[in-house]
Design a protein around this nucleic acid. Structure first.
Lengths: 118, 118
DNA sequence: CAAACAGTTAGCCCTTGCGCTAACCATTGA
DNA sequence: TCAATGGTTAGCGCAAGGGCTAACTGTTTG
């Protein structure tokens, strides 16, 4: 677990952009070319390509150029990386439910952005 | 599902930084004050506070100031948001495993799928 | 061959991210 | 009361993110 933490930076950052999440959503259904992927977005191609490169560099996709067409396919490794990060947190969380419960009832931390007066 | 996509931007971006992931890891064990959280990091306090604010703004943590001490606690909502995003992708992915398998093993994109040999 | 197509390269712009210092409250404890 | 503690505010610097246009390369295709 927690193999290459530095890879996680890119993996998560890739997901921080709606365009890139949408591209992954599309590629989850199956491979597609760059222009197929680009059409739904109101964005210049070079801008869009940056997202493709980001996804490739972060490991989310793998691409291959054949003739003048570049085809993209999703990669499953980052998926499992995210899942195991989540699982890790879950474990820690599980191992102290009691104390959390206690803290919540004792101090009742609110979600108000401003500090609540005493 | 996919309730507030725009929230996902911050949720994922928060995870794109190792300091913030570490803070979440620590908070998964239980609440802590800002200075408790800060000590492991070789970073000026104002810099560290930016991470705390980022985590709070993105919804990962909730904080409360009591006297001169600010206590932080983790929030589970973003967790489940990430999980459901993953689940969504999984679904799409599941619904076309056959074609994926083919693409992976046969890294050349063919115009017509090859039939499974008898 | 020439035109259309699918990307690519280069460079510009503006915003955001992430680190720092210096100076400044506001509690708390001696 | 006064110093130490725990954060906070303000501002600075630099790198990276995310968008654009213009111009270019390398395939198809009519």
């Amino acid at each position: 677990m927690a193999q290459y933490p530095e890879r996680l930076n890119g993996i998560f950052q890739a997901l921080a952009d709606p365009t890139r999440r949408a591209v992954l959503g599309r590629l989850s259904r199956g491979p597609a070319t760059v222009s197929e992927l680009a059409t739904p977005f109101d964005m210049a191609l070079p801008s869009f390509m940056k997202h493709i490169h980001f996804l490739e560099d972060s490991g989310w996709i793998r691409t291959r150029k054949e003739g003048r067409v570049r085809t993209c396919a999703i990669e499953k490794a980052p998926f499992t990386a995210v899942e195991s990060w989540l699982a890790e947190q879950q474990e820690l969380w599980e191992s102290r439910t009691d104390r959390l419960e206690q803290f919540v009832t004792e101090h009742t931390v609110t979600t108000h952005p401003k500090d609540t007066p005493p």
